[in-house]
Design a protein around this nucleic acid. Structure first.
Length: 426
RNA sequence: GGAGAGGUGGCCGAGCGGCUGAAGGCGGUCGCCUGCUAAGCGACUAUGGGGGUAUAAGCUCCCAUCGAGGGUUCGAAUCCCUCCCUCUCCGCCA
């Protein structure tokens, strides 16, 4: 959510941002609604002030034992008037709030302007793409042949867009998760968090998954939502709190399952485990003081890159353009791993800074000085990284013609020293 | 799931129809005192919104907020209803 003051003071900034994003929004109506809201508010407050004054006089008169009937009638009349006005105000306020929630964040100036994925900027590539003297297979073939990915079984027990890791496949994904968590906690200074996989409505409003993106979410019959990413619980860790300045920055890392309906993705990535309803991810998240966003985001991206470098996977970093960026971020960098079996770059991490956009919704603030007014913190997060897609990338990058897969060096200690995954391995 | 207790400022905790936006304490900030430390003394110390003035801040007036929402009343932290959350005991359970 944006600061409502921006509406009055710098509406052009918002208008430009919307245009850069190619986002349809009726800004003029929003501005008019805000003006209307303020006018009604002044009205209501004036009436209330009047009534409060009368009430005070009644209290005074009662203490002096004098007559209060006339004033009581007057106050009651104001009360009636007030009720009507109040109702009007509530309606306008509701409409205003609703519209504010639909307003996307303002991209930073340095974000490239563009319409779609095509306009994203590749910043650099790291690592050599492996040469194969055979045609590399996609991960679903490798995984099924080795008996470590079971798509049919997953379809039976759950449905399409699910996968089940079996044997060395399950161990490999667990190894990846542990390796990532260990790296971020021990080397990068993140505090490990293991949060609930279900979140309440309020928390999803906090991260702006609601109200706009309800279709992407699974909802339980009890009104809980399955988290689409650990960003949701982590960002809401300090919902409503006022933090001390010396607590910041806070670095959290969490491993969670993530659940997405993929309602708008029918027919896209239907094979394999690229796009599934449940996947597993290690997420990095920071609460920081304003002004440190870009430096901290840069560090966060590098922390994620360390994982890919350690796994010796060839990847590239891109900066998303204004048109391809999500609703919430001011700026987003993606890390994409090259997957030779599918012959494509696959997004494996998405790192964004939000400014105070989420903090405002979550009402997470800090006190810059002991006596100072609280200010909103700034937030950012990124995958560090997605375990399922990393597993897939390992299968495709480390495959042999015989169908076996070499285990990356750094993961072997997490897999009982196993150097290579062979068929029918328990 | 059943029974009970409770949710008040950064924290603890009083108040249970009217100068109570809220006693007292802790914590914090500033000042004094002090050879250092500790102690002591004094002042200040909730948030959001709106108006005026100034537009760097500041100053000033008003409104709202004592878990959330509704009701009673001229007036609600205080009374009533609904919901949420926390704690204790019992039941169930990985």
């Amino acid at each position: 959510m944006l600061d409502r003051r921006l509406l009055r003071e710098e509406p052009e900034k918002i208008r430009q941002a919307l245009q850069k994003r190619g986002y349809e929004f009726d800004l003029d109506t929003l501005i008019a609604t805000e003006a209307q809201r303020r006018e009604l508010l002044q009205n209501v407050e004036a009436l209330r002030a009047k009534r409060n004054k009368l009430s005070e006089q009644i209290a005074q008169a009662m203490r002096e034992d004098s007559d209060t009937r006339v004033r009581k009638v007057q106050a009651a009349q104001i009360g009636e008037d007030l009720a009507g006005r109040q109702q009007e105000l509530t309606q306008v306020e509701e409409r205003f709030e609703q519209m504010m929630l639909d307003l996307p964040n303002i991209p930073l100036d340095e974000v490239p302007v563009g319409e779609s994925e095509q306009d994203n900027v590749v910043m650099y590539e790291v690592g050599e793409q492996r040469k194969f003297d055979f045609t590399p297979k996609p991960h679903w073939e490798i995984g099924e042949q080795l008996g470590i990915l079971d798509f049919e079984g997953a379809a039976r027990m759950a449905g399409t867009r699910f996968v089940t890791d079996v044997g060395a496949g399950a161990t490999l994904e667990r190894a990846l998760i542990n390796f990532m968590l260990d790296t971020h906690t021990r080397k990068h200074g993140y505090t490990e968090v293991f949060p609930p996989y279900l979140a309440n409505e309020r928390s999803l409003f906090g991260t702006a998954n609601l109200p706009k993106f309800e279709d992407d979410l699974f909802k339980t019959t009890d009104g809980y939502y399955l988290i689409p990413t650990a960003e949701v619980p982590l960002t809401n860790m300090h919902q409503g709190e006022i933090l001390d300045a010396d607590q910041l920055p806070i670095y959290y890392v969490a491993y969670t399952a993530c659940f997405r309906r993929e309602a708008g993705a029918a027919g896209k990535d239907t094979r394999g485990m690229v796009r599934v309803h449940q996947f597993h991810k290690v997420e990095l998240m920071k609460f920081i003081k304003p002004g440190q966003g870009s430096a901290e985001l840069e560090k966060l991206v590098k922390d994620a890159e360390v994982i890919l470098q350690a796994l010796e996977l060839p990847y590239r970093r891109t900066q998303l353009c204004t048109g391809d960026m999500g609703f919430q971020p001011q700026q987003t960098f993606d890390l994409e791993v090259y997957c030779p079996g599918m012959d494509r770059w696959l997004e494996i991490s998405s790192c964004s800074q939000y400014g105070d956009f989420q903090a405002r919704r979550c009402n997470t603030r800090y006190r810059p000085q002991p006596q100072a007014k609280p200010e909103f913190v700034h937030t950012m997060n990124g995958s560090g990284v997605a375990a399922g897609r990393t597993l897939l990338a390992i299968l495709e990058n480390y495959q042999h013609e015989s169908g076996t897969v070499v285990v990356p060096e750094v993961l072997r200690p997490y897999m009982g020293g196993l150097p290579e995954i062979l068929p029918e391995m328990p």
